[in-house]
Design a protein around this nucleic acid. Structure first.
Length: 798
DNA sequence: CGCACCACAATTTTT
DNA sequence: TTGTGGTGCG
């Protein structure tokens, strides 16, 4: 039983702490104050969860567990209580109850970007102290833990990290060496299977045993591949992404001391995007938090869209039964979107069965209705998007306020063309990332080999690149020699002239080995930036690119130089000047996308990639059965729910304007198919939707005479031999109108464009049945546009 | 050994 | 349609 004084003290203390977070809503405040024990925060889209995370950490650093405890400090007295009630700075320090040291806090996110943002915002709010907080990704946390104790697992503490393409090529080599059929054993399937095994904590030996017991041929082969994969990884002192977590968990579970060390250290563990964790990650978080049991997970079961890579929604759904004393807080107030957008999002997601149940609300106004555009095909759809963006820009928006989201990267093409034709600057996110580009990987492979000459996998990659006369056969022989002698490939290269079988290539091999050794020695005293220069010069790699002189090779050369700025950036950020440090970091750093974040251009990306982002105006294209939801999800209830969550994520990216579009027919992978509008469209309440072009896009008439009249602006013009479209009364977007109008333009005309303003048409070049025009605009300078598209958004001035 | 040509498959993707 | 990987020829 608490005494009256105690009650007053605790209440006053809570009141004071609360007053320190005036900008939070009641639910957010509750989440910030609930510091002790397991806590599940179900944070809807746009509900300010990062704010909560940051303030929660701030609270811990400042007040310790005071906001969530009935405990009094040892010397609590009336005077102290008065100070707290007054709320001055004395009161604030009196209110604290063992403030938490920053290094006792572990905040785990999924992406480097999220971790970086967290760190940045923490530093801004809390100050330099924030640097000692472990705000990192699962993988980088594991690396830090493993660097300390990898030897206990038999790995060198400077183990290298293989990224997925390294893993992939290793698998390829193994499948080849084992002479298995590469069709039945696709790299993808194997890696998925190995990943799943690791996720279930099944090591290679256990897997193989189990496979042998089952007698399943395929499984046995799979087990053999798995074992060989792990053997070679171990021999190379390498871990892949899954291993980082797998081995960390193993380390913690098998070494009581190590486990106790970390458990004692991490007094508070926070996990962001908890719905995206897989079983191993869950286990890791649980284990690390095992000492103090102060585990706070933040997530949204409705935004779980990564099942395909192992995330299990179960983690979040069963958190409450896992931790009996758990408190659950729902953040349902949305600060991002208009009422209509939220209503649509709520309506769609409510069709799912497996969920915790949340309903977002907002005090924003209803806003404008969602626009649903029915297009005849993907060209029309793209032109609708382009045209809408031009209008918005013309009314004084920025390009970067617009995002176009699609289900598959393959859908980006038509949009890209439409943007090019219309003079809209755009950027595509996703696709091949910087560090995945061949030329960057090549150069990094050099650096890896220089750092660790026994890194056979990387050595094979660069052994004849640039071509130096070491052919595939010679490499094969050298590899055989290496495995016979149990030495590394590089060691064989050094002694190449001892092996008659290598005769022809021996000299070249020795030269390469010498180069590697020399650069290796140099790496001890030279920073990675200068070493890179040396590598580029001495290996002739840059020369090879420069000599080719094609457009691609110029960009490649640029990418290689860009790598140098990545190195310089690393050195500046970390203060570390070692090659091994940089390489360790690079393996975990996929994302150089952060460069020119402020560039003003329309953003294009998959819906997956858009998670966590927001834009004033969002287009969701390809709302068709078979595209979104994808063919694979149809008839699979679980998959369908995941697609629906994806739809929910996509819708909730929009702040003010949301445009959906579907096409009656679409060409994908070179084949044209007819599609019905997506079921998700039907799930959106009618009253929040404004349908546009329904008749023409999907109506009975759309394949009648309309079709021949130049509606398919992209190519039918040429097919119909320049035939003039029949005049018809059409809404402003109809391309037929533009085709008619296009004819009447000539060089020297004064024009007014709805986005770019007034200008003079300076040049007209016939191009594929259309014209490429150049217009000197007064406001935005020279633009190159395709006339047919431009004509929709432009009129002639007299 | 290097290049050109053909077959084939292709959600989504952080680390 | 696009990219990739394997094969065959000079």
């Amino acid at each position: 039983m608490m005494t009256d004084f105690e009650t007053r003290f605790v209440e006053a203390r809570k009141k004071l702490i609360r007053s320190d977070f005036p900008d939070l809503n009641p639910r957010q405040l509750e989440a910030v104050m609930a510091t002790e024990g397991p806590l599940l925060i179900l944070a809807g889209a746009g509900s300010g969860k990062t704010t909560v995370l940051i303030n929660r950490i701030a609270n811990l650093l400042k007040y310790g567990r005071a906001s969530d405890s009935n405990e009094l400090p040892p010397y609590a007295d009336e005077e102290m209580l008065r100070a707290i009630e007054d709320g001055g700075s004395d009161g604030r320090s009196a209110a604290a109850l063992e403030p938490v040291a920053p290094w006792r806090i572990l905040a785990i996110t999924f992406t480097n970007k999220a971790a970086g943002e967290l760190k940045e915002r923490l530093e801004r709010q809390i100050g330099p102290e924030a640097n000692d907080i472990w705000a990192c990704t699962f993988h980088s946390a594991c690396v830090r833990i493993l660097r300390r104790d990898a030897e206990k697992l038999g790995f060198p503490s400077d183990f290298t990290i293989y990224d997925s393409s390294d893993s992939q090529s290793l698998i390829k080599h193994i499948v080849k060496d084992m002479e298995l059929d590469e069709k039945t054993f696709s790299h993808r399937a194997i890696l998925a299977e190995i990943g799943a095994a690791k996720d279930a904590q099944i090591g290679a030996a256990a897997y193989l045993n189990e496979a042998r017991r089952s007698g399943d041929k395929r499984k046995i082969h799979m087990g053999e591949i798995y074992s060989e994969y792990m053997r070679r990884m171990f021999a190379a002192g390498a871990m892949d992404f899954d291993d980082l977590i797998f081995f960390t968990v193993k380390l913690l579970l098998e070494n009581d001391e190590v486990c106790a060390y970390w458990q004692r250290r991490f007094q508070y563990v926070l996990v962001d995007e908890y719905q995206d964790t897989n079983h191993l990650q869950y286990l890791l978080a649980k284990t690390l938090a095992g000492g103090w049991e102060n585990i706070c997970v933040v997530g949204d079961d409705d935004q779980s869209i990564y099942k395909f890579r192992g995330a299990t929604i179960e983690n979040i759904l069963s958190f409450e039964s896992e931790y009996k004393s758990c408190r659950t807080i729902r953040l349902e107030q949305n600060y991002r979107s208009t009422g209509n957008i939220l209503e649509a999002a709520n309506a769609v997601i409510s069709c799912n069965r497996t969920r915790k149940g949340k309903t977002l609300w907002t005090d924003h106004s209803t806003g404008e209705k969602l626009q649903l555009y029915y297009a005849g095909n993907e060209h029309e759809e793209a032109e609708y998007v382009a045209s809408t963006i031009l209008s918005a820009y013309g009314k004084g928006g920025h390009w970067r306020d617009n995002a176009v989201l699609y289900r598959m990267n393959a859908q980006s093409n038509q949009l890209e063309y439409a943007f090019k034709r219309s003079g809209i600057p755009y950027r595509i996110f996703g696709g091949t990332r910087f560090f995945d580009r061949a030329e960057v990987k090549d150069v990094l492979a050099y650096l890896c080999v220089i750092n660790t000459p026994s890194d056979d996998l990387r050595l094979v990659r660069i052994i004849n690149n640039p071509p130096r006369g070491i052919g595939a056969r010679s490499v094969e022989i050298a590899q055989e020699l290496a495995s016979e002698q149990g030495s590394s490939l590089c060691a064989i290269l050094r002694r190449a002239d001892e092996f008659p079988s290598l005769s022809r290539a021996a000299i070249r091999m020795r030269e390469l080995a010498n180069l590697i050794d020399e650069l290796h020695r140099m790496s001890a005293e030279t920073g990675p930036d200068l070493l890179l220069d040396e590598v580029l010069a001495r290996t002739g790699y840059l020369r090879m690119l420069e000599e080719k002189n094609t457009v691609e090779d110029t960009t490649r050369a640029e990418n290689v130089r860009e790598l140098k700025s990545a190195i310089l950036g690393y050195q500046k950020e970390s203060g570390d000047n070692t090659l091994s440090g940089f390489l360790a970091d690079v393996a975990l750093y996929t994302d150089l996308d952060n460069y020119d974040r402020d560039a003003d251009s329309v953003v294009m990306m998959t819906m997956h990639a858009a998670k966590g982002l927001e834009f004033p105006r969002v287009f969701i294209v390809g709302m068709e059965e078979g595209i979104f939801p994808g063919q694979r999800a149809i008839g699979e209830p679980e998959e369908m729910e995941e697609e629906r969550r994806l739809c929910y994520v996509a819708i909730t990216r929009a702040r003010e304007h949301l445009h959906l579009s579907c096409a009656r027919q679409r060409m994908i992978f070179g084949r044209t198919n007819a599609y019905k509008p997506s079921r998700f469209v039907d799930e959106i309440p009618e009253e929040t939707l404004e349908k546009k072009n329904e008749k023409r896009g999907y109506g009975y008439n759309s394949y009648g005479d309309d079709y021949e009249s130049g509606r398919r602006a992209g190519y039918s013009y040429r097919r119909s031999g320049g035939e003039r479209p029949r005049p018809q009364k059409t809404p402003p977007l109809a391309p037929s109108q533009s085709a008619a109008a296009a004819v009447s333009y000539a060089e020297g005309d004064r024009v007014e464009h709805k986005a770019f303003g007034t200008g003079t048409l300076t040049k007209m070049t016939p191009m594929g049945g259309d014209f490429l025009i150049e217009v000197q605009f007064e406001r935005v300078g020279v633009k190159k546009l395709m006339l047919r598209i431009a004509a929709q958004n432009m009129k002639k001035l007299d």
